[in-house]
Amino acid sequence: MKAVEAREITFTYQGQTSPVLDRIDFSLEAGEIAALTGLSGCGKSTLGYCLCGVIPRLIKGDFSGEVILRGRPGIVFQDPDTQIFMPSVEAELAFGPENLGLPRGAIAVRIADIAELVGINDLLMLNPAQLSGGQKQLVALGGVLTLSPDIIVMDETLAQLDAATQENVKRILMTLKQHGKAIIIIEHDISNLDIADQIWLLERDGLLRMPARKASANE
């Protein structure tokens, strides 16, 4: 089943003259991981916004095209400072499931599970403002995972993590994939593309699809 389908996405930021994204098409099956890569400033984060509906709902500009999502989206933004807003890590993780109206017991279980999985158990009672850059990225990821999204977009979430933590997050993603989640990671580091089933290269004239293994071998 296709979890995400995008047709002819075109977007121009307000005040800009040329579009950042120009008629982009793609689709992703549930249970697949796609890695989106491309030069800095080519529009990867913008594509991520379109994919989960932030564009056109919350960012002004000229949008056309269609995005079909089968399931709940969750996005980890590139800048964790703008994502995290609760005064404690625990509250941050609770925010999503609270919005879904889950009972307290279930929320407690989710927080415990995700904190354990992501490795932020020791941070639960801390104020996120007092965390290191990498720790903030983990908390941002945790806050999205407790929402239990079906479609996950991660915007360079691995970038500020140390090697061991990167491996752990990649393991988590493989598990989520087995549970039928559709995952899109935005990533520059070639060594992290090994978990992807598809590699999408975003360029001026569109999205270039590359078979996963060959691409990482070539580079």
């Binding site: 932030v54 933004f77 994502q83 807003f85 999503g96 879904l100 407690a108």
Partner: peptide
């Protein structure tokens, strides 16, 4: 810009997604 990003974050975490909101803290 910051406050817009905040609104994005709140919305994308299922805010108002369901008519009933529960609370972990009581």
């Amino acid at each position: 810009i910051k406050s817009k990003a905040l609104a994005m974050s709140i919305e994308m975490r299922g805010f108002r997604a369901s008519p009933h909101r529960s609370s972990y803290l009581v």
